[in-house]
Every structure is written in structure tokens, then in C-alpha cells.
Design a protein around this nucleic acid. Structure first.
Lengths: 213, 213
DNA sequence: CACTGCGTGTTACCGTAAGTAACAAGCAGG
DNA sequence: CCTGCTTGTTACTTACGGTAACACGCAGTG
């Protein structure tokens, strides 16, 4: 019975882990990224050392938590990108899906954007590994899709990655501002961003009599 | 002699403030955004309470410090945007100026991008006031310039602001990734991003026999 | 049955960082 | 000399991440 016991045990700890993650989730949903380990432990009805046994340290817990949300968001975005419509419609659907997600759960969004405060960064002012993993993943995924589907001529690999991270950055930057200021409807924002990607900036005329651009 | 004394006094404290800011600058340049108040005070040859008397709290000091760098960066970018060349050249010059700046002083850049950890956020999970002030300012400035110079038809105000923040976000996202991974030369990155803004994404053909996009 | 091993849980602690209270010294001007 | 103001200090509090050490419960084994 040793092996089956070990399996039971493994599953039990995995269930526990899931419970803890869900508790952490609730706290983050309430307090945002500055949720403390103490608060999370309290929400789960236990004390800190147990959290540390399960996740090593704070960034371990946060990584686990972020992975769940990131996976979910990526699924949503992929669905939007995979619909069988015109390219512009799909781009708009994807932008809209992202914006809807951050609009629905701003605290989670803030949590995901939080730089990792990584312990492994230590003393090296290395510039690597400082920004939000979510954005990196989104950028890479988008790059892959672009490279798969678009005929970009030579250098397509590099071009696709730049575009992937650039578009994700655009989405993030505009979304962040929009969420804070709410200057217009979501649909308007989506249309404006798609216009930007569709080259309207390059096509626009100078202001008549203006200083030129 | 009372008034002139008061003026002397005012100027003296202002000089002191400048000295302290320069010390803080050196520490941030060395340690990045996690520079501690103790370390900054030590660098300035004094102790914490004096820093607090001058700047109120940490975010006060950080705001003052960020303002200096943001002003400087904005000046650089404005110069690039104001050159008397073709629109595409000016856009590329601006992107390049931004990227050169973050490449030259990554620690300062990390510091500027750091979310404010604002004390005034307190308990309101308000979503406002959480992201880097630098990006907001860049976005607004760019929006102003776009609105001033481009003929965008109706709704131009709103469109310009969306584009401003969107383009800044794109620049930031791509720059951040590029700085971490260094996948190509700066000039390449600039050209690719300009291509994106010039609508090459919309114009590209599907991969022959691929899944479509 | 006593005994060992292991996973779960606790309390109590350390180090560090933000922020503050309270006090000491230099130096104007009555 | 004494009052008031600025500049500086030391020493504290509070909060948080992280850890050590110890206690309980519960399998399986001699």
C-alpha cells in the first residue's frame, strides 16, 4: 500500500495547495498586489510558515498565482484571435477581450503587472527579469502567432517578435491609461487602436497651415 | 534685513534640497528603485529625519527625483520630434532617442517605471494612480503634439490621446523587452516599430497555405 | 504496546526598511 | 542672558518577509 498512499498524499498536498492559492486569490482580489503573506495565511485560516513550506517564498506564491490568471487570459485571447473573420475584426476582438478582462478585475490586473521583485535578481543590476512576466508571455505568444500566419518576407522571425511585444505594449499602455481615466467607451478605444495599427498615423494629413508633422 | 534674510534662507534650503536630490540620484543610479532612505541619507552624509523634513516621505523624494529625469527625457524627445524632416524620420528619431536613453541608464529607467507605491492610494482599490507617472506624462505630451499637428477629422482630440498613450506603451513594451533580451540592434528595432506604425501589419499577406490571419 | 517517521500546525524570533518622537547644538536678535 | 529657529542626532515603533524550534496527530513496524 505504499505507492497508493504516496499518491493519496501527493494528491492531498496538491489539493491543499489549490486551497491556499484560492485563499491567496481572494486576498489579492481584495487588496491588490500588496497583499501580505500574513493576510493570505489568515484568509486561509493558517499561519505563515505553512505558506512558505508550500511555495518557498513570496515570489513563488505569486508566480503560481500569476500562472493561473495568465493561462486563463491567454486562452481568452487565443479564442478571440482564432475566430474565422477578417483580420481587422480579429485584432479588434483580441484588443477588446484584453480590455474587458482588465476592466472586470482591476486588482488582479494590477497584481499581474506588478514587477516580480525577484529574489534571484540579488545584486546584479542586470536589467533582466524586472518587468511583468505576463507581458513577456503575451508578447511571445503573439509573436508566435504573427510569425505563423503572416508572410513577412526576410527577417520575419525578428520582425514578428518586435511586433508582438510592441503591440502588447500598446495594448497595455493604452489600457492602463484608459482604465484610470475612462476617457471613452471601450469600443471607441478598440477602434482607435486598430486604426493606429492600420497605419492611419502615417496616412493622416498635416494640419492645414499648422507646424507640420 | 528681515526679508533678505528670509530670501537667503529660502535659497539655502533650496540648495540643500538640490544637494540631497543629487545624492539620491547617485544612490538610485547605483541601486535602482529599491534604494533605501537610509542609504540615500548616508550618501548625503546625514541621517533619515532630515530627508523626511525635506521631502515628507519616500514617495515625495521619489516624485521630486522622477520629475528631474522626466523633464530631461521629455526635452530630448521633443527635440527629436521637432526636427525638420519627413514624418517617418521624425518618428524614428523619437523612438531611437527614447531607446538610447533607457539603454544608457537602465537603473534610472527602472526607477522611473516603478509604480509609485503611492501612500495616498490608501484603502481605495481605485485603480487610479498606480502606474508610472512617466508613461502618463509622455503619453499626454505625445497626444498634444499629435493633435496639434495632424488633421484627424472629427473626434481628433480623443483619437490623439489614445494614440499618444498607445504609442508610448508600444515604445515602452518593446523597449523593455529589447533591453532585457537584446535580440537585435537598436536601429533594427526602431525600423520594425516604425513599420508597425506605418501599417505593415495590416498590409502583410497571409502565409501561402497557412492557417490565415 | 511503545517507537519511529512524517506532514501539519504553532509560537516566537531575526533583519530590514519606513517613518517618528525627543532631544542637543549652533546661531540670529531682543 | 534668554528666546526662537534651523540643523542635526539617537533611539524608538511598526510592519513585513522569512526562519528556527518545538508540538500534535497519525500511518506503519518491532
Amino acid at each position: 500500500m505504499q505507492t497508493s498512499q504516496r499518491l493519496d498524499q501527493q494528491q492531498a498536498t496538491e489539493n491543499r495547495r489549490r486551497e491556499l492559492l484560492e485563499a491567496a486569490d481572494r486576498v489579492v482580489l481584495r487588496d491588490g498586489p500588496e497583499a501580505s503573506m500574513n493576510a493570505i495565511a489568515a484568509e486561509a485560516g493558517i499561519t505563515k510558515p505553512i505558506l512558505y513550506r508550500h511555495f518557498g517564498d513570496k515570489s513563488g506564491l505569486y508566480r503560481a498565482l500569476a500562472k493561473r490568471h495568465t493561462d486563463a487570459l491567454l486562452d481568452t485571447l487565443r479564442t478571440a484571435l482564432d475566430s474565422r473573420t477578417a483580420r481587422r475584426d480579429r485584432v479588434e476582438a483580441t484588443l477588446d477581450a484584453y480590455l474587458a478582462a482588465i476592466e472586470a478585475r482591476p486588482q488582479v490586473y494590477r497584481f499581474l503587472m506588478h514587477p516580480t521583485e525577484d529574489a534571484d535578481a540579488e545584486k546584479d543590476f542586470d536589467t533582466r527579469r524586472y518587468s511583468a512576466p505576463l507581458l513577456r508571455r503575451l508578447g511571445e505568444e503573439l509573436a508566435k502567432i504573427i510569425a505563423e500566419r503572416l508572410d513577412l518576407g526576410p527577417n520575419s522571425e525578428e520582425l514578428a517578435r518586435v511586433w508582438g511585444h510592441g503591440i502588447v505594449g500598446m495594448m497595455h499602455g493604452a489600457g492602463d491609461w484608459w482604465l484610470a481615466e475612462r476617457p471613452c467607451e471601450r469600443a471607441q478605444l478598440v477602434a482607435h487602436l486598430a486604426d493606429l495599427l492600420w497605419g492611419r498615423l502615417a496616412a493622416a494629413g498635416d494640419i492645414p497651415g499648422g507646424p507640420g508633422f
